[in-house]
Nucleic acid binder design. Structure first.
Lengths: 235, 235
DNA sequence: CGGGCGAGGATTGTATAAAGTTTCGCCTGT
DNA sequence: ACAGGCGAAACTTTATACAATCCTCGCCCG
């Protein structure tokens, strides 16, 4: 019985080639290196990862299911461009789910988890200090994902992964330019509340954190120009 | 202007061959015609729908993402077999999301929607009357989906579709044998509350409905027999 | 007679080729 | 000069062929 065989593992193996493509493209989108509307050609990506279009196609379909890629029939895959209505839905869902998640995280508190959270906070602060906007965006989302993992609820985790990915696109599209550094402080406060096992404080801080993020957005009509036309005559 | 061309439609066209496979297999699973653990061979399904394995694979991958099919590497696709832990997570998520959904449904109330809901209730009653268990199971899930559509929140709708599909498997696996007819009455009560625009009543009835469904389950360790062995030595 | 081992068959994973659709440039006609 | 249409190129979609992996069953050895 070799210990290396894990027949029932559904965890995203890094050794899986499809996962590598999916995670690479996801990272590029979440770090705002691929902008909404960008065409994701199958040949193009396949060349980059040295794989055939079959695997690229699989990865793109998974991303489409997660909502960060749109596949238009016979036209190809594009980085999604969430509408303001989508944005409101995403943040409403996060306001519903994430307070519950931190609640569960309080139940799972342990030295190991507190250590992971604080190590993450350190990473976030460091990235922000050196002005690495891309890493900051990615780490900010990772914080929420980490709390969801801590909660131990695989379904909430799956839902939140989708919501975080979409949020990243939304923030890119609709953030006001004059916003200060985002919520590393908030994250620290949430960790402190979790550490003290203070359910109510944790829930409240998570909620206000989400509200502040959404308040920094400008969710008037589409990005104004082009989309308006398309709406008037297309749909 | 031919009405048949809908270039921007992302709705699941019945004309799409992948969708037809996906919906066919989903219906078979939700109606308890395909039992958990059943092998879903690619050739087998491809033959049935007259399609090549490429399309079948796409459909199966989508179902895997929805959680009602497990794909094991180099072994194939199987109808999922949710654990009691999965079941608890699914119902906790439903208790969180569905009260919020009915809340939104109250905002969307209109004669057309009330009509659709009542027509659905009639269908449910009829199926139950003639003892069609398969149709009953499917329609019971469809009721919740219909309310989610009415809420107009596409994200909640997507989440709930997953939860409903998983619930159907869970009910099949863990329902107590002595349960009476399920909750058509509950559904009628929820519709009545929505119609009267009574938010609190609607939320409360939805919540108690979900609680009753879960109370009818026997979520002690696996389905007892076979799985116990597998757990002891396999995983 | 029981257990390990290996070849054969079946099934999945990956790549490539054929078919269909869209897009863009060019060309013609007014 | 410009609008409209034809045609070729590029891309996506679907099917098929090839490679790799796993399961089964029979054989051989202890």
């Amino acid at each position: 019985m070799a210990a290396k065989s894990r027949p029932k593992s559904d965890a995203p193996d890094a050794s899986d080639r499809v996962s590598r493509i999916r995670e690479g493209v996801t990272a590029a989108i979440l770090e705002h290196r691929l902008l909404p509307g960008t065409k994701l050609g199958e040949d193009e990506i396949g060349e980059i990862y040295g794989s055939s279009r079959t695997l690229v196609r699989t990865a793109l379909q998974q991303l489409a299911h997660e909502g960060i890629v749109n596949i238009e029939k016979n036209r190809g895959a594009f980085v999604a461009r969430p509408t303001p209505a989508d944005a409101r839905e995403v943040f409403e869902a996060r306001r519903l789910i994430e307070p519950t998640i931190v609640d569960h995280a309080v139940d799972a508190v342990s030295p190991a988890w507190i250590g992971r959270l604080q190590r993450h906070l350190a990473e976030e602060r460091e990235a922000e200090l050196r002005g690495d906007a891309r890493a900051s965006v990615r780490l900010s989302g990772d914080f929420h994902r980490l709390v969801a993992e801590m909660s131990g609820h695989s379904i909430y985790l799956g839902f939140l992964k989708e919501l975080i990915a979409r949020s990243s696109l939304i923030i890119l599209l609709y953030r006001r330019h004059d916003t200060p550094a985002c919520g590393t402080d908030h994250h620290a406060g949430i960790v402190a509340a979790i550490r003290k096992r203070d359910r109510e404080a944790a829930r409240a801080q998570m909620l206000s954190h989400l509200n502040e993020i959404e308040a920094e957005l400008f969710l008037k009509d589409p990005a104004a120009d082009e989309l308006r036309l398309a709406d008037v005559l297309g749909v």
